[in-house]
């Protein structure tokens, strides 16, 4: 049994929250650069140039790429041979409090959804834990902005809707979102499982590098096809028209019930942020 102090988790969450908000992952930068090189529409090129300039400034000055520094999603894969000393929930929230406070990040969380008073420190985190083999903890911090979160959708399709129904729902979601989620977007998709599992997979799909395709060839081909179809919609960067509407479609899937075909689409903006550390 390996001991990990809860304070170690607090420090890691705080550091990752600031890092993730100020430095765009290399894979996202790479895809934006490729998109810029392949973009034929002049207005769209101008926007992509500004987006590239923006993350450059954020890198150089270590300031947030976007003012919406998000709700702080925290994913923990905890090895079953790890013992955490202290209160894990409190440790994670303390990390958010520290990171968002000391890192000059925006506090964007309200205490309850109807009475809407800001918590003032961006807590609580959206915390997900999973028990896995081993004696390590994999910690991912993913600040999630709500311009794109608000454009996300879930459908409980019928098995008879099949793959065509899934494609149509994903395309409809992206088309209806239009300029609102700050395209170019990353499209996270969860297919199968249950209502909640599909939504969780769609969120997790956004953590996969945008340069990496699904390990299953069938789903990898579906990702490519959907990306091509989305980029044929013509929405373009910021919705002003152009080829680059999405940077990637990342699909996760899971077994499901004989009666169901859940599909969740979690949209992320071009500032697709996440950072992982192994403790």
């Amino acid at each position: 049994m390996r001991e990990i102090n809860a304070e170690t988790i607090t420090e890691a969450v705080a550091e990752l929250a600031v890092e993730a908000n100020c430095r765009l992952p290399g894979d996202v930068k790479e895809r934006i650069g490729q998109a810029r090189a392949n973009e034929p529409w002049p207005t769209a090129c101008g926007i992509l140039d500004k987006i590239i300039e923006n993350y450059g400034i954020a890198d150089e000055n270590f300031v947030p790429i976007c003012q919406d520094t998000g709700v702080c999603c925290v994913f923990l894969k905890i090895g079953q041979d790890v013992h955490i000393t202290g209160d894990l929930r409190k440790a994670v929230d303390e990390g958010v409090r520290k990171g968002y406070g000391e890192g000059y990040l925006r506090k964007s969380v309200v205490r309850d959804p109807l009475r809407r008073v800001n918590t003032g420190d961006n807590t609580p985190a959206m915390l997900y834990t999973e028990i896995v083999p081993g004696d390590k903890i994999e910690l991912t911090v993913a600040p999630k902005g709500f311009g794109s979160e608000n454009m996300s959708r879930l459908a409980m399709l019928k098995p008879s809707d099949g793959i065509e129904g899934v494609k149509a729902f994903i395309l409809k979601t992206v088309e209806e979102a239009g300029p609102n989620p700050c395209p170019p977007i990353v499209v996270g998709v969860g297919i199968g499982g249950t209502f909640d599992k599909a939504a969780y997979m769609a969120k997790r799909a956004l953590m996969r590098p945008v340069t990496e395709r699904n390990a299953d060839e069938f789903y990898a081909a579906l990702e490519d096809e959907l990306l091509e179809k989305i980029n044929a919609l013509g929405i373009g960067p910021q919705g002003f028209g152009g080829k680059t509407t999405a940077l990637a479609v990342n699909i996760e899937w899971y077994p499901t019930h004989i009666a169901g075909l859940p599909v969740a689409v979690n949209i992320n903006c071009h500032v697709t942020r996440h950072k992982t550390v192994v403790l």
Partner: peptide, 21 residues
């Protein structure tokens, strides 16, 4: 816009637009 807090020496933090609808 809802900016991020200004760091010491900054006029204002990051300050892009939010969704208008």
């Amino acid at each position: 816009v809802g900016p991020t807090p200004a760091k010491p020496g900054q006029v204002i933090g990051s300050a892009g637009p939010t969704t208008s609808y």
